[in-house]
Amino acid sequence: MTPASDIAYIAFEGDRCVASGDLRMVARAAKETLDRRRDTVVLVFGSSSGPVEIDFRGSVDDVLARLPNPERAVAAEDVAQPAPRGPGRPKLGVVAREVTLLPRHWEWLAQQSGGASVALRRLVDEARRANKDKDRVRQAREAAYRFIAAMGENKPHYEEVARALFAGDAERFQAWTAAWPADVRDHARRLAATAFEQPAAPAVAG
């Protein structure tokens, strides 16, 4: 089975997968399917974002022209805002945002080496490293749930499948999805695979 990370987008006509791959390829295949069968419905999903809204009006070229360009679409929070250059080292990649804390938090931060901003960045980086495995499992579980909520709600044992997913019970998830249509079943299992991984055990000093 192809890993979910290798399938950026996937399109379903009913319970049948009609395309998977990058957004432009999937959108083209979805539009062509809709043009061939005007009474059908095609849903497009991102591997981590859930259902994707695509405007299918007009020609294939019209549809593709309205798609976001992944090479240009950079999340706003990842873009450093330009600021007047001053003395000292340039703050590359730093974005100013408002943070609301209690007085005791500000007092503690003020006592840290480098000041509040440096301390906050250090705490965030440490939390990201410490929770990397948990975050990956959580994100996979949420992605799988968004898919099965859209595609599996009318399928047999839907509630049992959802419970097994959030309980981390891979065996029950496999069993309850066995009766689902093959394409829906396989993609649900593909998305959920990471959600059932066990976090790596801490290294023990010899």
Score class of each variant (00 low, 15 high):
residue 31 K to S: 00
residue 31 K to Q: 01
residue 31 K to E: 01
residue 32 E to Y: 00
residue 33 T to H: 05
residue 33 T to G: 01
residue 34 L to A: 11
residue 34 L to S: 09
residue 34 L to T: 04
residue 35 D to S: 12
residue 36 R to A: 15
residue 37 R to D: 02
residue 37 R to N: 10
residue 38 R to I: 07
residue 38 R to W: 07
residue 39 D to C: 10
residue 39 D to K: 13
residue 39 D to M: 09
residue 40 T to A: 13
residue 42 V to G: 14
residue 42 V to I: 15
residue 42 V to D: 13
residue 43 L to W: 10
residue 43 L to P: 01
residue 43 L to S: 15
residue 44 V to C: 15
residue 45 F to Q: 08
residue 46 G to Y: 07
residue 46 G to L: 12
residue 47 S to N: 11
residue 47 S to W: 03
residue 48 S to E: 12
residue 49 S to P: 04
residue 49 S to R: 12
residue 51 P to A: 14
residue 51 P to G: 13
residue 51 P to Q: 14
residue 52 V to E: 07
residue 52 V to W: 02
residue 52 V to S: 06
residue 53 E to C: 11
residue 54 I to W: 04
residue 54 I to Q: 02
residue 57 R to I: 02
residue 57 R to H: 08
residue 57 R to G: 08
residue 58 G to K: 05
residue 59 S to W: 09
residue 59 S to T: 15
residue 59 S to Q: 11
residue 59 S to L: 06
residue 60 V to N: 03
residue 60 V to D: 04
residue 60 V to C: 09
residue 61 D to T: 10
residue 61 D to R: 13
residue 61 D to F: 07
residue 62 D to G: 04
residue 63 V to K: 00
residue 63 V to N: 03
residue 64 L to S: 07
residue 65 A to S: 14
residue 65 A to R: 14
residue 65 A to C: 10
residue 66 R to P: 01
residue 66 R to S: 05
residue 67 L to F: 05
residue 67 L to S: 08
residue 67 L to T: 03
residue 67 L to C: 05
residue 68 P to D: 05
residue 68 P to V: 06
residue 69 N to Y: 12
residue 71 E to Y: 12
residue 72 R to N: 13
residue 75 A to Q: 10
residue 76 A to S: 15
residue 77 E to W: 02
residue 78 D to M: 01
residue 78 D to Y: 02
residue 78 D to T: 00
residue 78 D to G: 11
residue 79 V to F: 03
residue 79 V to R: 07
residue 79 V to W: 03
residue 80 A to Y: 00
residue 80 A to Q: 04
residue 81 Q to P: 05
residue 82 P to M: 07
residue 83 A to Y: 02
residue 83 A to S: 12
residue 83 A to V: 13
residue 83 A to R: 11
residue 83 A to G: 11
residue 83 A to M: 10
residue 83 A to K: 12
residue 84 P to E: 08
residue 84 P to D: 03
residue 85 R to V: 06
residue 85 R to S: 06
residue 85 R to I: 06
residue 85 R to W: 02
residue 86 G to K: 01
residue 86 G to P: 02
residue 87 P to T: 09
residue 87 P to Q: 04
residue 87 P to L: 12
residue 87 P to M: 06
residue 88 G to V: 00
residue 88 G to R: 01
